[in-house]
Write a protein that binds this DNA or RNA. Sequence first.
DNA 1: TAAATATAAATGAATGTTCGTTTATTTATG
DNA 2: CATAAATAAACGAACATTCATTTATATTTA
Lengths: 197, 197
Amino acid sequence: MRTRDLQKQEAIRQKALKMIVKEGFDGLSMQKLARAAGVSPATIYIYYKDREDLILQLCMEEGKKMAEATLKNFDPEMSFEEGLKVQWLNRAKFCMENPLSMHFLEQIRHSPFHDKVFTKMDTSFIAAMGRFVHNAIRRNELVPLPIEVYWSVAFAPLYSLVKFHMTGRGMPGTGSFVLDEKTLHQTLQLVLKALKP
Amino acid sequence: MRTRDLQKQEAIRQKALKMIVKEGFDGLSMQKLARAAGVSPATIYIYYKDREDLILQLCMEEGKKMAEATLKNFDPEMSFEEGLKVQWLNRAKFCMENPLSMHFLEQIRHSPFHDKVFTKMDTSFIAAMGRFVHNAIRRNELVPLPIEVYWSVAFAPLYSLVKFHMTGRGMPGTGSFVLDEKTLHQTLQLVLKALKP
DNA sequence: TAAATATAAATGAATGTTCGTTTATTTATG
DNA sequence: CATAAATAAACGAACATTCATTTATATTTA
């Protein structure tokens, strides 16, 4: 039998990501995608059940990539300061090196699609995070608070900074903004100050 | 001459917001919108040049509403702690009372549309914010830092909390999450701790 | 005051286009 | 040669938008 052409599969993936990031979900049409990827429209349906399945699979693949990148060299048994630092640098690195993934995931995250992927998220990632927070509180390295408050204070500022950086400009009306290593560490210190007892 | 029916205009606005929030930008079709609002498709084109103009006008109207709500009882000359508190409560109140506006704006904010509205944002809002931050630093009530870092630490956690609240659940795998007054104030205190010298 | 007129609002139906998806057929490889 | 990959062409449906027409009302005229 004939073998699958992995290059085609990858071309479809990449072009789909690019289209969504550049033109939004409106911009993703199966026929345009086929043209961009250099395949027949019908070929896409060999790999994906339908348009929604394509988007959902992209979500899960990119989400998994990001989750794995985040946990690199991370251990829930680490000290709070050490562990949070590792996660910050991991997330920042991933975002900088994979702007397409980052933009795609952020767009999904704030769209109605998010609900559909939500339940299928990797639970081991959340479990590791939960254990880390629990350990930190037990060791008195972190003020006791709900996990959602923790997440909001610990990571929302990071993603906000990354967004400022990747759109290339800062607050409207102001000049450009570049997230350099110094600014990253400065902000991490602020967050640590907030969260440490 | 015949007078404009303001109820029709308002129905179009409201149904458009609802459609986008519920089904994303894909879900907004002019014919569906006309049917939902109880008008002819051609009527929409009396009020809006085309589909993109409709979305852009919605952006600016809702954005303005939110900006105005944020500045209620706010004065850039306020003390840092007082001013930040006022803004937190204003923003939280607006989000809770206008979930449709909030979801719509968040969706825009993370979509390619954002670039198109960006330049047209109200600058007086940003000016007031800039003055507030500047005053706070001068008075030694706030550590000196770039406005983008300030914004990220000061407000990103709030929007993250609101999002947890409004989707009705907390972190994936965990139970539900409700943003009550106590949690809101607790998180505000953490943020203040981070930002005060 | 009452009828006529002017004008913008509003519409239903139609435009050509593009959409997601399928089918019948050809192509490449185990 | 068997079989799955890949395709070109086509499907009806839905798309954004327009056009010829009707409707309602503010203003003018008698």
